[in-house]
Design a protein around this nucleic acid. Structure first.
Lengths: 348, 348
DNA sequence: TTTTAGCACTCAACTAAATAGAGTGCTAAT
DNA sequence: ATTAGCACTCTATTTAGTTGAGTGCTAAAA
């Protein structure tokens, strides 16, 4: 799809992008000639820059300014040019393990890592709470809270807990509750959650309704709540480092800044922002590649983190299109790896 | 402490503050004379304004500008001048009850109300998750997760759930766990949480250690986790409406905006910001009354919400000192009342 | 054919000066 | 005690002028 540029054009584009990422200003031919030892004069570079502009890799804010990379230019940089040699990960790994030790429970871990990621990248970051695909339920407990409330607690084999309060109309005595509880334990623990699909629930339902005098309505509620835990519609999302956005000169425009912050303020738009394919390890969305038009001057780096082979959550970093891609991408890679390990192994 | 101003000075100060809250600009004598029917000429108002400045209620950005209220001026306004007739609360109450119905669990309710409060006030808002003072534990369940992990689930009589994963070195069989569980149920449920103090735990400890062969270390861990649930060191805090901050012209200064957002970005500073006395129903902190110097161009309205007579959480609204105090205060009052009811009565 | 030196041209950004206008403070009359 | 009137102050806005980074083109050199 993307036609490769010849060697010299590549070098020049590379130099311009690197320079622009540092200075945040349009880059001129003389700067490149002086700072980057390409063995050609500024005039030659000038001609090449005109070509690169015509090909769509560069843009010119106005006639007498230097060039800035276009989204296409950044895309070429990310796909082909940049050297992805990564960062020194020692400190990152150390900090991560400290967080894991200090925090208990999924909330603390995920929000701690979100903040840490933003401190390392100096951009705004977001991480969704994991869904528990590819785990097994190791415990199910139905606790009577009051006459019309049951608490359903489910523990996954990787050590996380989910609970739901269930409103019931029908009063159930403790014995019956214990019976249902045991029934559920038999049916749904120690099985991969992915296999607990609709068909399986239908089977359970039939059996349970036959065996005890449990109203259809009650079963539906319990059923629904279990499914909700296993496959939540509404996943929490954590965000950190919002104020780093203001360090970037492209957000000095208050009106624009407001649009961006407004998106970060609302869970629904935020989730839409870091929607990504589950099967890709890492996804970089540059400028107009973002669906939301308010985000089209931003880039987002999104990674999945996993349990086994299933993506269970997303890690995202948001910055201007002039983002330090190599640093961000390798940081996100490391964090998603480690987070995958943490949530997979909490219990092992 | 605050000496009362005479009637005319009061009216003029009142008019200036109201005008300034609307326009966000320095207010001149002629504007007041024209817009507010005080029955005196601009020259008289001018003289009074000079007096009010000398008394510290007004400030002049520069010689040829109008006046703006000082923190002292706002304080006088909040304590004495403003009419606290409140807002039309119908819509607010309706929205609140919708949130309560739609959301289950404390996270959803508190974060939903935080967002709603910011939408109503158009300022940034924050609400802490409730601590469970003045409730009783209605259920305690110790669930074996693995050989070295127990899950402790506690349900309060107002229907909220807290859980902690406990790492244990000693392997416990199910019977022993059930024994400890029953023991705990007997000892700590159905008692007001406030009475479960250190002495009481010492008693329990003695008894439990005597009766079963439970290592001191294990008891300490369980003990600690129970205390942590009852009196958490680390309370979650929710924040909403950050982007509304940008609507206020006083935050057009990017450097200042960054300082403020930075405070909102970090849980520790955020909590410090809405620290307030537990016994006051509502607290308004104007400008320099805020401890953090980055906040001294802001005002914060803080209310406690309660279970019974105990403050269990805080509601805060953050805006510029030029905040619409009457509207914010009455909104916060209503929300804290309702939130108190919601968390007290979830289960009744 | 490719590269480069040289130069006229462009245009945003900055600077300085001029102008407008909102508002004050004081004085003298009411 | 109040107010009309006016000189004075100071910011904000406008306008004109200047600077300088950077381009694109041309013609010579490699």
């Amino acid at each position: 799809m993307v036609k490769n540029l010849d060697r010299r054009k590549s070098s020049i584009l590379h130099a311009i992008i690197q320079e622009h990422i540092i200075t945040a200003s349009p880059v001129g031919s003389r700067t490149i000639a002086k700072k980057y030892d390409l063995g050609v004069s500024s005039a030659t570079i000038r001609n090449e820059m005109a070509d690169l502009e015509e090909l769509g890799y560069l843009e010119q804010p106005h006639t007498s300014a230097g060039r800035i990379p276009s989204d296409k230019g950044y895309r070429y940089y990310v796909d082909i040019l940049m050297n992805n040699k990564g960062i020194n990960s020692d400190k990152l790994i150390k900090t991560l393990s400290e967080i894991t030790k200090a925090k208990k429970g999924i909330h603390g871990i995920v929000s701690g890592i979100t903040n840490m990621l933003s401190e390392f990248t100096k951009y705004a970051t977001m991480i969704t709470e994991p869904e528990f695909k590819n785990t097994k339920l190791s415990e199910v407990q139905l606790i009577k809270v009051t006459n019309n409330k049951l608490l359903l607690v489910m523990v996954t084999d990787n050590g996380f807990v989910s609970d739901k309060m269930i409103n019931i109309q029908q009063d159930l005595d403790k014995r019956k509750i214990r019976y249902i509880n045991n029934f559920l334990v038999n049916k749904i623990t120690d099985k991969n959650i992915n296999n607990l699909d609709k068909n399986y629930f239908d089977e359970i339902e039939d059996e349970l309704l036959k065996k005890i005098n449990l109203s259809q309505q009650l079963f539906n509620i319990i059923n629904k709540e279990i499914k909700e835990i296993i496959d939540p519609r509404d996943v929490n999302i954590y965000i950190g480092g919002t104020s780093y956005i203001l360090d970037q000169p492209e957000f000095n425009d208050i009106e624009y800044l407001k649009k961006v912050l407004n998106i970060l303020d609302h869970e629904d738009t935020l989730k839409k922002l870091i929607t990504a394919e589950n099967n890709k390890e890492i996804e970089v969305r540059i400028g107009h590649e973002n669906e939301m038009k308010e985000m089209q001057r931003c880039s987002v780096v999104i990674a999945n983190y996993t349990i086994g082979d299933k993506a269970v959550g997303k890690i995202g970093v948001l910055g201007p299109t002039r983002m330090e891609y190599p640093r961000v991408i390798s940081t996100v890679n490391i964090v998603s790896d480690i987070l995958s390990k943490i949530i997979s192994e909490v219990n092992k």
